[in-house]
Structures are given as C-alpha cells and as structure tokens.
Design a protein around this nucleic acid. Sequence first.
DNA 1: AGTCAGCGTGTTGTATACAACAAAAACATT
DNA 2: AATGTTTTTGTTGTATACAACACGCTGACT
Lengths: 222, 222
Amino acid sequence: MAAKESLKQKAYYAIKDKIIRCEYAPGVMLNEEALREELHVSRTPIRDALSRLEQEGLISILPKKGIVVSSLSMNDINLIFEVRLLYEPYALLKYGQKIKDEVIYKFFHTFSSSAHTFSEEEYYALDDAFHVAIVEAIQNPYLLKTYDWIHNQNLRFRVMTGQFVDLRLERTNQEHLRIVTACLKHDWELAAKEMEAHLLASKNATFDLVLDNKNSEMQHGK
Amino acid sequence: MAAKESLKQKAYYAIKDKIIRCEYAPGVMLNEEALREELHVSRTPIRDALSRLEQEGLISILPKKGIVVSSLSMNDINLIFEVRLLYEPYALLKYGQKIKDEVIYKFFHTFSSSAHTFSEEEYYALDDAFHVAIVEAIQNPYLLKTYDWIHNQNLRFRVMTGQFVDLRLERTNQEHLRIVTACLKHDWELAAKEMEAHLLASKNATFDLVLDNKNSEMQHGK
DNA sequence: AGTCAGCGTGTTGTATACAACAAAAACATT
DNA sequence: AATGTTTTTGTTGTATACAACACGCTGACT
C-alpha cells in the first residue's frame, strides 16, 4: 500500500500520528537522531517532515537546541473553538445547500436511533465525520487547511483529557440531532444557530475536562 | 542585519519575494539547481525553503519532475475574497474595540486629508497596513496565518494586473473613510457592514482588471 | 512509416560527512 | 567554597555525493 509513498511522507505521517496520539506528549523534547533511529531513515526525510510539522504548529524547532512538541494550554481551547465557531456555522449558512440530502439523512438516522450502540471511541469517529462533512461543504482550500490544523489540535486535547463521560455523550447526541433536523428542513439559519450552541457547550465541556485533569494531576502528586 | 539569519530563512524570503513580485511568474517551472546558483547556497536550505513555500500554496513540488509556481485563476479571486469577507468584518465586529483609538485616528487623518498626495504604490502600502491592522486585532495565530497566505496571493494579483486606475483609487479611499468613520464612532456593526461592501467592490474591481488583462493579452497576440 | 524497447539526460529523493553553535561539564584560580 | 574559563558533548545547519525515477530520444525491428 505505502510502497510508492516517499520516505518523507512516511516520516511525516508517522511523527504526526505519534504527536496526535500523544505518544510524543505536549512539551517533550525530540531530536532528529532519535527519530532517525526509530523510523530507520536518514535525517533528510526526517527534517522534511519536521519542517512541515512546524508549519502546522505541532512542533517548534529551536535552532541548535532541539525540537519541542507544542504544548496545549487553556488558551489553545479558545483559539481552536474560535475557528470552529467562525467556520462551522458559516459552512451551514452559506454552503448547507451543497450537502447531499442522503448524507444528512444518514447522519439523522445514525444519531436518532443507534447512538447507544456505539462505543465512545466509535462515537468520536462519528462526531468527527459529522463536523468534517459540514465544513468540507466549504471548498476553499485555505479555510479547509486551517480547519485541519485545529482539528489535529482538538484530537490531542481529546487524548490528553480522556474520553467524554457518558452524560456529555448523550447531550452531544441530542445537540447533533437538533442540527441535523434543521438541516433536513433546509433551515440553514437555524442549523447554524444550533451548531453555535453545540460548539459553545462542547467548548465548556472541554474546559471542564482540562480543569478536572489538572486537579487530579495535582492530587496524584506533581 | 541579516548576519545571524540562517541560510534557509534567507532562501525562503528571497524566493518568496521573487514569487510575490512575479519575477518567478505564475505557472513557470523552477529547479533547485538554478535556485542554488542564483542564491549561492547549497540545495539543503533551498529545499527547506521550497518545502515551506509549498505549504503556503505558492509552489507545487512535482516529484522527480520539477517545481511549478502556483498559477492564479479567476477562481483564486473567489477563494481569496471569501477568506477576506469572512475574516475582516468578523475582526471589526468582535475585536474592533481592541484597536487603539490613536491608530484609527491616524488612518482617519490619512484617508481624509492627504490621500491625493500618495502615489499608487504608496497608497497600496497604506491599504495593506489598514487591512492588516484590522485583522491583527484577531490575535488567533491560526486565523492570522491563513490571512497571511491569501494576502500574499492578493499581492501577486496586484502585480499581475498592474496598479489600480485612479478612479478606483478614489473610490477605495472613500470606502476606507466610511469604515474608519464607523470605527471612530465605535459602531462596529456598521464598520463591519462597510467593510463587507468595500471588499465586494474591491473583488469586482479585481475581477474586471483580470478580465481586461486577459483581453488585452489576446489583442496583443497570444 | 510505425511501434516498441532501451538508453540518456535531467530532476528530485535520500544518505551522510562536516560545520557552527549552544549548553553543560570539567577545571583552574582565587 | 565560589567563580570565571576552557573543554567537551550534543544538537541542528549546511554541503555534497549518490540513488531513484520520469521523460524524451534514438534506434532497431516489423
């Protein structure tokens, strides 16, 4: 499958994946030599990959010192959700009509009937697919690229904070239903409004989770 | 000044500058060897720079074939102005309050009294400074990075289409004045609306210029 | 003349050796 | 013991040689 993929692409995806899954945790130092040994390639493709990852904000390269995986602060939550709050309602309002009805109906069906049969992990994939499907109705590559970045950062937050609790998952599903229902009626103004409400709730939930996380860390020492 | 700048940064800015000024015109092919000779550095910093420029959408790297400077199509105008129409009114609406009054007053003074003393080139720099000052009130680095990209693309369009005609410059200045006046009153909703109108007018003007350009190209053969 | 195989040239991809610098460690001096 | 200096070590920056591939060209064969 990846036989024709260049080494620099392989290195890029491999390192990116480990950063997103927090195998390389926020704030830790990396160095080219260690990555070289781990991926069994020379420094050149590693450096290509690192250059790209720096552009995307996942790492910082400190000249002659090392590479640090970008940390995640409270403020990053604000930054991520600012972009989402700007893009996602806009996508519905201006491009909702471009989303195929069958796609909308598929999500409606999934959210309304079988939500409880999903594991948390599976529901995450579903949540991602839902939001991405909406945003991709904007076909502007500049906007989509930015969205991809914050999407990655959002994934890191998920891994760091652990999964949602069940209660929030229920609420999330209900909010999704309200958005999808508005979409089915082709009432894009309402859909955008519901999306905004959903994102604000999600933002607060993320804030709480990060705070809880900080607290329990302190209780467990360190 | 640039003594401590790394070669890869020097290469990046040098190539980027030539692309923006259309010394490397849209659609032309480059190769690492020629760039290496032109900049008197080895391929490594060149490749670093190219990787970054590819991220920013200014070039495409075709493996084993060469490097092509991204072309500018009609559709790119839509993409650029979609981002501007999304960001700039948003900046005024949500962050207008963060712009210092003295900055606003400085622009008011400039636009209202001394516009006619500027050359077209100078007025461009002023126009840029004005829009950038507004957008930078959004402090979100993700949004600002996207804006920087489309800003560069916009500059390329300017160079390609030649400067505005005087008539449009007059109109532009009047539109700027309307925006700044609303800002002085701290009426950010009005300011955002005026900005939207200004951008739509500017978009149409750019379209017309590109069309004229295409036509005159055809008249002059090819 | 047409077609296809093989070769040659030009391009980026990859590996690696060396340079430049930063930071820590070791050491001498007081 | 404290301090300033030198050395050592570790890191990325840079240069360069070689590999891999794409594409056009040549030539033989039909």
